[in-house]
Design a protein around this nucleic acid. Structure first.
Length: 935
RNA sequence: GCCGAAGUGGCGGAACAGGCAGACGCGCGCGACUCAAAAUCGCGUGAGGGUGACCUCAUGUGGGUUCGAUUCCCACCUUCGGCACCA
């Protein structure tokens, strides 16, 4: 029984070492040209007031890896700060009457304490808090630089607005099908306001290039989709009043199939082109459309709506006169806000045309070559079915009707037969890979709007049941059998397209685009889903936008020397949640920097994503040149620090930032590069995402569910080292999963075993360890170093800890033998502590110093493994017969192929299963197995 | 609807340039210690069959490639993310 003082009591040793490390400035990161640098960064928290287990899950393994890199000889920077502007501070102000600044700073105070209990190697001297003037001076400075570069502009825009928070929302802050506010859940409405934007779209193409960074495929895909580049053409249609109407299309090869146009309800030409007869209906529709975005967009709003505006345009490729409609399925914000409707090859246009009786003319051949015909009973003369059978045209017969499904090549023969057999008073058609109507007196190709009219008229004469049909396609749609071949969106040979008919699908887009350019009616064009970044927030608690509005001079930027525009400390947050700056006379009124006359300040503040777009630069020299006036050619961080530390080598954080923060910060860096502030293209070279820890019930942790795991409680009970190691051990880091309060007990036991393994007395008998025993222990030790190194490199934290457990288990066995106290034993102890140090810094330090080793374990070099020592001497040779394991043999690792095969074939297990069979083949996998193929 | 990821014991998870499935841990069972319990330590633990050595089945389902597939290919099912009238 160990004496009480020798028990593992993390609650005593952890604070002790944290204090000591801090006194010794062990984790200060200073420029050291003699060492390679490593900038490890983990996403900074919002100071909500409580560090939750998710923060630990993100930060503790990141810290372990930063510590590992440090032991590998890198000069490591691993800073921490707070993303301190934002809405919750204002909500707290409203609810509790506390000023946002005080609320934020006291939260930070508490969270700093909690963060320190983690024992991470944060360099607190580099802490940066985004709501302090020394920080947001530079956020404002960046705004001015963007403005100067033409990348910040103001425009009136319909923005999502939360009536409860009384603020505009970014697209990503609007959630869910019902479009509710990210923060409070209130359904969002649209509002027209003058807003500031950053021109992120100017960098869209460059943001699509991920060649310089090692980021998870998932994030790359999400960003690629978010940016949503599509290539196509802009084509100019002309209204009958001679107004050019430009449309964007990705399918110029379908131009000949454009049978109508649709303008977005907000499109300026709607107003101009609408005829008096249609005006009332159009205005009603526009009103409806505008209102519809105000009401929550109801769930099943699938059904297409729209109205004809009375006007016509001319299809520039074939002179066809086509009606112009307005419909809300066309967005004003994408492309040109106008489309050509090609219902035969676009699902939405098809649905729209079918509903409103617009002609649908196929212009792209079906690549699958499937053609169909429905032969109604009595429409053909006797012997038709037999003729089809003889021609090997497949069909099914049901209730006397024939359902013919044929290949494109068979359609000519089919048409001949149908024509020969068709009864007077009937018609028959072929659809899909061929479009033909067969009447008793002749065959009509279905190839144009005119043909559509003529065919329909003839059919109506013959069959009263189709009287109400407006188009051929509407008539065909009633035949269920046809539905899957009536339209398609594939590329294919162009048909019914004038001179372009017959152009193969793989070159059609290119050829048509070139021709459009020659004709001067269109040109190659690229469109993006990405919109410019709306940075205005109608909030008090954010970095002010450094702009004043002067009656004489208009929009005037605040001079660099006058930064920062300070947030007034005495502002009162109105209970309505409105922007306090609007009502703060002292802030609002100022003088124009240009003419000295009276002027008003911009009261919008900046999106907090701006603050977090450059925080990794702020860490280099927090609040750089505080108190000194800034200039246009200032640097927002110390260039010496930047030259050494940048860019970030490894960035860790949650996947939820894939399309917001992680695009914005890349954008920021590219602009900074173009401004000459940095000389690289990407801010973070390697990115890794951790998953989410759920409550023990498998649900997302929340106070209302009562499933929240509080790190403070865990630290108090188990100590930080146990919590850290469990967070690394329990899950695949990138996936996360439910908390398991029994699982952590296992890790606590492990650390206790490590403690006892190192400190408690072992074997007390006489004798020397055998050479084999020494070799076996050393082999395990060196294999463990190899495995630990590989796992750290690949962020495989769970197997990293498992490997340490294995080493410890092996040592506990060795401890009961003469190995205890030997040189090999000491090597094992030292290695165990060194490998443990990144994950569990306190216990490693305690045991390191207790065993008389020089302080500090965290200044030691990562151990190296000797491949020869780590090499196995004996391997288990698996013997398979026909792929099934039949025996296992212990053999020397350097066994030759012949020896291995020989042993395997003669092994008892193999003989049992090869008896009476012929051995056909023997396969040898070096160091692993022999597979005997016997039949 | 489209795009992407993942399905392995009772549980978290190992092993995938194709080669012993289930490392490590939780839980569970048996044993030691104890008057007893907890803690600790030892042994066992995918399912089924056989007294036994052994045998059969098993990595979401169904096919395929291969001497050999958790790993590669095809189809399907389930779960979780992302986007969602993007022309």
């Amino acid at each position: 029984m160990a004496s009480p003082i020798d028990r593992y009591i993390p609650q005593e040793i952890e604070p002790k070492w944290q204090k000591k490390w801090e006194e010794d400035q062990l984790y200060r990161s200073r420029i050291d040209e003699s060492k390679p640098k490593h900038y490890a960064l983990t996403m900074l928290p919002y100071p909500s007031g409580d560090l939750h287990i998710g923060h630990w899950y993100a930060m503790a393994p990141s810290d372990a890896r930063a510590r590992y890199m440090r032991m590998r000889g890198y000069n490591v920077l691993f800073p921490m700060g707070f993303d301190a502007f934002g809405l919750p501070a204002e909500n707290a102000a409203i609810q509790h009457g506390i000023h946002p600044f005080q609320w934020t700073m006291s939260n930070i105070e508490k969270m700093r304490r909690q963060l320190r209990s983690m024992g991470a190697m944060f360099d607190w001297e580099r802490e940066a808090i985004s709501c302090l003037p020394g920080y947001y001076k530079w956020t404002e400075w960046f705004f001015l630089k963007f403005y100067e570069a033409g990348l910040a502009y103001r425009k009136k825009a319909a923005v999502d607005f939360c009536p409860k928070c009384n603020t505009t929302l970014a697209r990503e802050q609007v959630w869910g099908e019902d479009r509710h506010c990210e923060r409070c859940g209130t359904p969002v409405i649209k509002k027209e306001l003058e807003q500031w934007f950053f021109k992120i779209t100017a960098y869209a193409d460059e943001l699509l290039d991920f060649s310089q960074i090692d980021w998870p495929e998932r994030v790359v895909t999400m960003q690629t989709n978010w940016i949503g580049r599509s290539e196509g053409a802009e084509v100019t249609f002309v209204s009958e009043q001679e107004d050019p109407i430009v449309v964007f299309t990705t399918r110029p090869d379908t131009l000949w199939g454009a049978t109508f146009m649709v303008l977005a309800p907000e499109h300026p030409l709607v107003e101009k082109l609408t005829t008096p007869e249609c005006r009332q209906a159009v205005e009603d529709y526009q009103y409806q459309a505008a209102r519809q975005s105000e009401i929550e967009r109801l769930s099943t709003e699938k059904e297409k709506t729209g109205v004809f505006i009375g006007a016509y345009a001319v299809n520039p490729v074939n002179g066809q006169r086509i009606p112009i409609w307005t419909a809300d399925y066309v967005m004003m914000t994408y492309g040109t806000g106008a489309i050509m409707g090609v219902p035969s090859h676009d699902e939405r246009d098809f649905e729209f045309a079918l509903k409103f009786g617009l002609p649908i003319i196929p212009v792209i051949d079906r690549p699958d070559g499937v053609a169909k015909s429905f032969v109604i009973r009595g429409s053909m003369k006797e012997g038709f079915a037999q003729a089809l059978a003889e021609a090997q045209i497949p069909f099914e017969e049901r209730d006397g009707n024939l359902y013919v499904t044929m290949a494109q090549e068979q359609t000519d023969r089919y048409i001949e037969l149908a024509q020969a057999h068709i009864q007077a008073g009937y018609w028959n058609e072929v659809v899909g890979a061929r479009w033909v109507f067969i009447f008793a007196d002749g065959v009509h190709e279905f190839d144009s709007v005119e043909a559509d009219r003529e065919i329909l008229a003839r059919c109506k004469q013959l069959e009263p049941a189709v009287q109400d049909k407006r188009t051929v396609m509407e008539m065909l749609w009633d035949v269920e059998f046809y539905r899957d071949v009536l339209f398609h969106t594939e590329y294919g040979t162009m048909i019914n397209s004038g001179p372009f008919s017959g152009t193969p699908g793989d070159v059609a887009v290119k050829k048509v685009t070139e021709w459009l350019e020659q004709q001067g009616i269109g040109k190659f064009a690229v469109n993006y889903r990405l919109r410019d970044w709306l940075i205005s927030r109608q909030r008090y608690w954010g970095a002010p936008i450094p702009i004043v509005y002067c009656d004489q001079c208009g929009t005037v930027p605040v001079p660099y020397e006058d930064l920062p525009v300070l947030l007034p400390e005495d502002a009162e947050i109105p209970p309505s949640g409105e922007n306090a700056l609007k009502y703060h006379e002292g802030f609002l009124h100022t003088t124009c920097p240009q003419c000295g006359g009276p002027a008003q300040r911009e009261t919008d503040t900046m999106d907090t994503f701006l603050c977090s777009s450059w925080y990794h630069y702020a860490y280099l020299s927090p609040y750089y040149q505080e108190g000194e006036p800034a200039h246009a050619d200032s640097m927002p961080f110390d260039p010496k620090e930047g030259a050494y530390w940048l860019p970030v080598d490894v960035y860790t954080g949650g996947i939820e930032h894939a399309t917001m923060h992680l695009i914005y910060t890349r954008f920021f860096t590219k602009v900074m590069r173009d401004l000459g502030l940095v000389d690289f293209d990407e801010p973070m070279l390697v990115l890794r995402n951790q998953g989410i820890i759920l409550g023990e019930d498998g649900e997302k942790m929340s106070k209302s569910r009562g499933n929240v795991i509080a790190p403070d409680d865990l630290v108090e009970r188990y100590g930080a080292d146990t919590v850290r190691a469990y967070l690394m051990f329990g899950w695949r880091w990138e996936l996360g999963g439910p908390w398991d309060s029994q699982g952590i007990e296992g890790v606590a036991r492990f650390l206790e075993r490590v403690w006892n393994c190192v400190l408690a007395p072992g074997y007390e008998g006489d004798g020397q360890p055998s050479e084999d025993e020494v070799r076996a222990l050393r082999r395990k030790v060196h294999q463990s170093i190899r495995k630990a190194t590989e796992d750290m490199e690949s962020f495989s934290f769970n197997t990293y800890i498992a490997n340490l457990m294995e080493l410890n288990n092996a040592m506990l066995k060795a401890k009961e033998t003469p190995l205890y106290g030997s040189e090999a034993w000491e090597e094992a102890v030292e290695t165990l502590l060194l490998l443990l140090a990144p994950a569990c810094p306190h216990i490693a330090e305690e045991l390191w110093t207790r065993t008389g080793r020089p302080y500090s374990v965290h200044l030691q070099a990562w151990p190296a493994w000797d491949p020869e020592v780590a090499a196995e001497e004996v391997i288990t040779l698996v013997v398979q017969v026909n792929g099934k394991v039949r025996d296992r043999l212990e053999v020397p690792a350097d066994i030759t192929e012949e020896q291995a095969k020989e042993l395997a074939v003669n092994s008892a297990g193999a003989r049992r299963h090869t008896a009476g069979k012929t051995i056909r083949q023997v396969i040898y996998v070096p160091g692993r197995l022999v597979n005997i193929v016997a039949r």
